[in-house]
Computed example of a mutant assay.
Amino acid sequence: MCGRFVLALPAAEMARVFEAAPANDLPDGPRWNVCPTTQVPAVVAGEGQRRMVSMRWGFVPHWYEKPNGGPLLINARAETVATKPAFRDAARQRRCLLPATGFYEWTKDEDDARLPWYFHPADDGLLAFAGIWQDWGELGATCAIVSCAAGPSMEAIHHREPVTLAPEDWPLWLGEAEGKAAPLMRAAPEGRLLRHRVDTRVNSNRVEGPELIESIDG
Results as ranks from 00 to 15, higher is better:
Arg94Ile: 06
Leu115Met: 13
Thr37Ser: 10
Thr107Trp: 11
Leu115His: 08
Leu139Gln: 06
Leu115Ser: 09
His120Asn: 03
Pro27His: 02
Thr101Val: 11
Gln49Tyr: 05
Ala42Trp: 10
Trp57Asp: 00
Val43Phe: 09
Glu110Asn: 06
Asp28Pro: 06
Asp135Ile: 02
Pro41Trp: 03
Met52Asn: 13
Phe87Ile: 04
Ala42Gly: 15
Val17Ala: 15
Ala86Lys: 02
Met55Lys: 00
Asn75Met: 10
Ala122Tyr: 01
Thr37Lys: 12
Leu115Gln: 15
Met52Ile: 03
Thr142Trp: 14
Ala78Val: 08
Ala100Asn: 06
Gln93Leu: 15
Glu138His: 14
Ser54Trp: 00
Asp28Gln: 13
Ala100Met: 06
Leu97Thr: 10
Tyr118Gly: 03
Asp135Lys: 04
Gln93Ile: 02
Val43Pro: 05
Arg31Ile: 11
Gly48Thr: 14
Asp28His: 12
Pro121Ala: 05
Glu47Gly: 11
Ala20Asp: 05
Glu110Val: 14
Ala20Pro: 02
Pro30Ser: 05
His120Gln: 07
Phe103Val: 06
Ala122Ser: 15
Ala15Ser: 08
Thr80Ile: 09
Ala113Phe: 11
Arg114Cys: 13
Thr107Asn: 13
Glu79Cys: 10
Met14Tyr: 02
Ala113Tyr: 13
Tyr118Arg: 05
Trp117Gln: 01
